[in-house]
């Protein structure tokens, strides 16, 4: 999970975002879409990898989190995050097909799949500038 330079078409601040999503096609497309907007994107394929990434890499301005994942799902990830005093302040936005199932979680936003790019960028800009 190494940061890669994106290809921004406009000068933007280089804030980092962590995408936690098990579906490779969604993960790669989100990474591409955000890098094109000038963001640095890290990825993880399940909640456990996501927590490891948060502990090892520079703190991201936002975590985009899927709910249904193997090994550690989205609910378990949020629970572990909230239990860690260092990681708890990191804002999390859900990206899920099950919008209603995420409503009990303490996350900053819920973005429903299939993702509306404008809405996604609006949420990202709110936390990452």
């Amino acid at each position: 999970m190494e940061p890669q330079t994106g290809v921004p078409s406009l000068p933007m601040p280089c804030a980092s975002i962590l995408v936690v999503e098990d579906e490779a096609s969604i993960r790669d497309t989100l990474k591409l879409a955000l890098e094109l907007e000038g963001y640095t994107v890290f990825t993880a394929s399940n909640g456990e990898e996501g927590l490891e990434a948060l502990r090892r890499l520079p703190r991201p301005c936002l975590v985009l989190l899927d709910l249904m994942m193997p090994v550690m799902n989205g609910w378990e990830f949020v629970e572990a995050l909230e239990a860690d005093t260092v990681l708890a302040p990191i804002p999390v936005a859900l990206v899920t097909a099950y919008g209603e199932r995420g409503q009990g979680l303490h996350t900053k936003a819920i973005i429903k799949k299939p993702i509306d790019l404008e809405l996604l960028l609006k949420v990202v800009k709110e936390f990452c500038g």
């Binding site: 096609s25 969604i26 989100l30 879409a33 094109l36 097909a97 790019l117």
Partner: peptide
């Protein structure tokens, strides 16, 4: 519904990214 949205998501994103570009 979840399973059908899974392939729709990258498809829609790709289309939107291309459109934006």
């Amino acid at each position: 519904a979840h399973e059908l949205k899974t392939p729709l998501t990258p498809f829609k994103l790709q289309v939107q990214v291309l459109k934006r570009a």
